[in-house]
């Protein structure tokens, strides 16, 4: 579905060159849930950003189906994100002036084949809080709105950058549980970045990154339900 070949990314910070990625090749298989595990600075966020069309690689190739994303224009990348990718961020990034329902509608308004915002919010267990503004929701609830917003357009790929990074263990578990359900029920290919090794247990595959390279790929024979995860 999404295929990366020898991706490299070099940032120039003043006079310093930072090699965030050094030749990463990987493929996301349709319907799988992948956890990208790595310490801070391992390159996992850079990889996710490139795969999501937020950034372009310095070298290497990236294909979504037959589309070459590594040489796509800003306009084409916007199109790719709009049609195929859902994002979940560490700090939720909800629009404060819109209610939960409207935040989801923000995406369904421009999507080709979306579900109704209400349906998306039901899926994340927030049917009772649809008309609340972000300021009136807890962190876990805000993150679930963000997930509803990400999946409402029925994306092929769901990319989650430290989705539990700002949450406590219980709330985090709840959020991951929602992600796992979505993956299983809708078959959305899901990639979760985290530095938390425990979360790896819920994945089909675990990819470890260190120093801009893939250091290990491990397939779980059984996936633990996210609800059982404790940290």
């Amino acid at each position: 579905m999404l295929r990366a070949e020898a991706l490299s990314k070099v940032y120039h910070m003043g006079e310093v060159e930072i090699h965030a990625l050094r030749g990463v090749s990987l493929e996301l298989v349709s319907g799988e849930l992948v956890v990208l595990l790595g310490a801070s600075g391992s390159g996992k966020s850079t990889l996710l950003n490139i795969m999501g069309g937020l950034d372009t690689p310095t070298s290497g190739q990236l294909f979504y189906g037959d589309t070459a994303l590594h040489q796509a224009s800003d306009r084409e990348l916007t199109r790719f994100r709009r049609d195929h990718v859902g994002f979940v961020f560490q700090f939720y990034n909800l629009i404060p002036s819109l209610t939960a329902r409207e935040n989801v509608a923000m995406v369904t308004d421009i999507a080709r084949n979306p579900m109704r915002p209400e349906e998306a919010l039901e899926r994340v267990g927030l049917s009772g809080r649809m008309d609340h503004f972000p300021a009136q929701l807890s962190g876990g609830e805000q993150q679930r709105v963000a997930i509803a917003r990400a999946v409402a357009k029925r994306p092929e790929i769901l990319l989650c950058d430290e989705p539990t990074g700002a949450l406590d263990s219980n709330t985090g578990g709840l959020v991951l549980d929602v992600l796992q359900q979505i993956n299983q029920e809708l078959g959305t290919t899901t990639a979760v970045i985290t530095h938390n090794a425990i979360i790896a247990d819920m994945a089909n595959r675990v990819i470890r990154l260190s120093d801009g390279k893939i250091s290990d790929i491990h397939t779980n024979t059984t996936q633990r339900p996210a609800r059982e995860l404790q940290w």
Binding site: G52, R82, V85, N93, I95, I110, R149
Partner: peptide, 16 residues
């Protein structure tokens, strides 16, 4: 800034 970036990431075009 953050709100607008979020929208860009969600697939909103520059003009939108």
């Amino acid at each position: 800034e953050r709100e607008l970036s979020t929208l860009r990431v969600l697939g909103y075009s520059y003009a939108e």
